[in-house]
Write a protein that binds this DNA or RNA. Sequence first.
DNA 1: GGGCTGAAAACCTCCCTTAC
DNA 2: GTAAGGGAGGTTTTCAGCCC
Length: 327
Amino acid sequence: MRRASWHRDQDSVVGQLAEWEVWVELVVQSHGRLHVFLPLLDRGIDALIHRIEDGSWFPVQVKGRSQLRNGSLQIVAPAASLVDPDALLLGVALEDDHVGPFVLVITEGDFKRIANRSHVRGKPTFWAQVSLVPGRTSRWAQYVFPRQQLADALLAGIKPKFKVSPPPRIRGAIARATGFRGEVEVTRRLADVDELTIFRAFPDLETAEVVVLHEKSRQVLGIQVKTIGVDRQHPEGTIDIDVASFRPSATTWVVGVAWDRAVRRFRDECLVIPSLDVNRIVAPYRGHLRFPFFPDSPRKWGRLTPYRRPLADLGILMAAELFRISR
DNA sequence: GGGCTGAAAACCTCCCTTAC
DNA sequence: GTAAGGGAGGTTTTCAGCCC
């Protein structure tokens, strides 16, 4: 659908549309090698990109414009919004309702090095006019890529070792609803800690269902949420992890929570397990890692004992871990 | 064409007032 | 005492004007 140029009162639409067009380009061009996580609360970073080949995470900011000036993209960014030198800044121009033929891909550190410095209402600001015209001499030229190479620009330097083909998720409606409830509960507990920004995958292809970025340490942790349902007749449940889709790493944790069907609330106790420890707790059997979960039980838990935690402490625990791995 | 700054509009936050 | 509503002022984002 073609449409007229964007009006000033549609500025916020321009920014949002630009972001979504970029996410779609990244997912499609990378054939699933780049996964996009969107923040539940906007704090400047528009997304975390997960590069599957090496498990690395990239904070990304998108600057979208509906108009160019003399073929150049105008970008004005307050210094306070450019806090992570390794974060990527993507500049795109919208043509009608899609991304234009050329895009800017640059780290915030390089952007601050090359851009002009000025002050807007007394606040330090970086300003740039990036030519997107092919062949034109510009100091930004090495950071301007054809739109079709957007994903390659992010994947640059990585030699793929394998292709990722995530298995389809087949879940019953009830289990699915319980699982979703668990993800929301974990998200809510993480939201108790101001320093954590929470992201969800787009699309949902990831082992880690919830990802948190520590605003001070800039470290990232992925969390796979496992939810069991319990009641008086069934005080225990089984945590079941599909080995085929499970990719343990130092930055991925498994959190088990228990939904009490009778009183319709979560039990006070949860399991918090580094994903690299799961194989030590239980051996894979027929493609699954399975172990029992007795929430709020006085009995001894054997090898699970070190991972028992109050659910109320989940956010603080994750923040402390993110701070620890940054040192 | 590039550099700098301001305008416009939406959004956000704080604080005061009002109603229950 | 508390919650809801509303307005003022600040902030953010994008685009445009002006100058070199």
